Computed example of a mutant assay.
Amino acid sequence: MISDLLIAQGAIGTFMVAIAVFGFAPGMVLALIVRLIPDLDRRRELQAELYEVPRWDRLFWVAQQFEVALRTGLPVHIEWFWGRYVWHRCTLESGLKSHRESPHTFEIPDRESKSAIRPGDRVKLMWSVARSPGERMWVTVTHRKGDQLIGILDNYAVFAFLKPDEKMKFHIDDIIDCIFEEDDVEEAELAA
């Protein structure tokens, strides 16, 4: 009986489509859908629930989850995009430029200190934010190539639409303050 079905014309192709539609597609589509949902725990729950739903109902269940994700998650993403790129646009400001404009009141680290910055050190950068006061936040340096640096944001932003642990690319002239990793270690040893 099964051998007769498999040798019928187009049976292998139909079988492969059925595997893709009922086996592979629901999991892959759900993995894309859950990215819209901001709550990480809910994302994991949905992915675990998929395999509790009977195989024949999975397509409809995934479609329902898409509707839920659009209703609950999409407004959050739109709000974040609107805030970050339209309403509260933030741009990294040059510390060197601010120092040149006000050399007596705006101090920055000297060239030697800046050239000594290595991965693990912390630097302070400043952002101008449209329609809000600017912000100054600490960034831990992760990579350095000449005067170009990459780091991870250490602060929670108040006005700028930036997330903690967000990756930052910046130039050495953007730095307005720095703390070297060995200074942190020495302070911790003195405090103990």
Rank of each mutant, 00 (worst) to 15 (best):
I2T: 12
S3G: 04
S3F: 11
D4Y: 09
L5H: 08
L5D: 09
L6F: 12
Q9P: 03
A11K: 07
A11P: 08
F15H: 01
F15I: 02
M16H: 00
A18G: 00
I19P: 00
F22C: 02
G23F: 01
G23L: 01
F24D: 01
A25P: 01
P26N: 01
G27W: 11
G27Y: 06
L30K: 10
L32E: 04
L32S: 08
V34L: 13
L36F: 15
P38K: 12
P38C: 05
R44C: 14
E45D: 03
Q47D: 14
Q47H: 15
A48E: 14
E49W: 13
E49T: 12
Y51G: 04
E52H: 13
E52R: 14
V53D: 05
P54G: 01
R55A: 05
R58Y: 11
R58M: 14
W61Y: 11
Q65S: 12
E67M: 06
L70D: 00
L70Y: 02
L74D: 02
V76H: 07
H77N: 09
H77E: 07
I78K: 06
E79Q: 06
W80K: 03
F81C: 02
W82H: 10
W82E: 07
G83M: 09
V86L: 15
V86Q: 13
V86R: 12
V86P: 02
W87I: 14
H88E: 05
H88D: 12
T91R: 13
L92A: 10
E93A: 13
K97H: 09
R100A: 13
S102V: 10
P103I: 14
T105K: 07
T105N: 09
F106D: 14
E107I: 11
P109S: 13
R111M: 15
R111F: 12
S115Q: 14
P119G: 05
V123D: 01
M126I: 02
S128M: 08
V129D: 08
S132N: 12
S132G: 01
P133S: 14
P133Y: 01
P133W: 00
G134L: 08
R136E: 10
M137S: 12
M137Y: 03
K145T: 08
G146N: 05
D147Q: 11
Q148E: 11
L149A: 08
L149P: 05
G151C: 00
A157L: 03
A157R: 03
V158D: 00
F159D: 12
L162C: 09
E166K: 03
M168H: 13
K169V: 08
F170D: 08
H171Q: 13
I172N: 08
D174P: 00
F180A: 03
F180Y: 09
V185Y: 03
E186H: 04
A188C: 04
A188N: 06
A191W: 14
A192C: 10
